[in-house]
Amino acid sequence: MKISELPRIELANLLHRGELLLKLPPFVTRLKTNVPSLIRDFAVMYADFEVSSIDAFADFHVEIASEPGLWRWLKPQVRFFFDGRPSFIPLPTVQAFAMLEWGLNWCVAAHSHQYLIIHAAVLEKNGKAAILPAPPGSGKSTLCAGLVMRGWRLLSDELALYDMTTGEIFGMSRPINLKNRSIGIIKQFAPDAVLTDSVPDTTKGTVALLRPPTQSAVRVREPVRASWIVLPKYTPNMLPLLEPHSKARTFMLIAEQSFNYDIHGENGFEAVGNLVDQCACYQYTYSQLDDAVRTFEELCSGKIT
């Protein structure tokens, strides 16, 4: 059953009791919350995701709860719990959904060492997939959102889960975290995009989350094999430029952008090497999403090799 098929009151009751098991292949997360704004955002953002039966195994047990006491009235805050233990400092209640997303990222990145976890977006079209690894500020999420709103399947905006044995990548297809100017850019680029309210004054500035397209959520179980590694570089007023990028430098970037490369030791080295071997590597400088959509279409259709 999908989240959107649950009556809102039933969804709220399940979340209140901590009995909502969300399928985020390859994981299942048990969620609990008593925060009304979070329940509202969750219902919209995860509308197309499926729930597991209550007795299913859950990889992560997550709760976001309102802080008790007087503060609840003066300065309402929420706290993230992992396996029943408070984690991270409390944040303003208005940041509850962003906190859930950041917390889930942490759960996966800190505990899922059966994968090499790369800080990267992953997109797929016509059976071909691109990995977009990038440090903050490179325009990765904006580019990812723009491509997704033009028909690319979203696997991930943040965490690429690379199975080092099979070479397949999972991504969970979770909402895209847009920041600051990106929010307005995507609203203008894709007026039908569904976003949460913009939340100012977070540690990342103003943030809003973009709902994954239905088709991405429906196909969330399908991993991909990457064909390209593209390093995005947003540069204002620049003409688009897709250039081959050094394989060795791409290797180093993937290693640096992996949360657990060091943990995997020699296997991690071999795995990143295999990934770089199988991919064409590029750096892509862009300033306009329309240009980026054209470039990626050309890449996908084989006009660029």
Partner: peptide
């Protein structure tokens, strides 16, 4: 010592110190 190189113009390679 594990080495990985590619037949590319830049001649760069990566080395892993076990």
């Amino acid at each position: 010592l594990k080495l990985k190189s590619w037949d590319t113009e830049d001649g760069l390679a990566v080395a892993y110190n076990v």
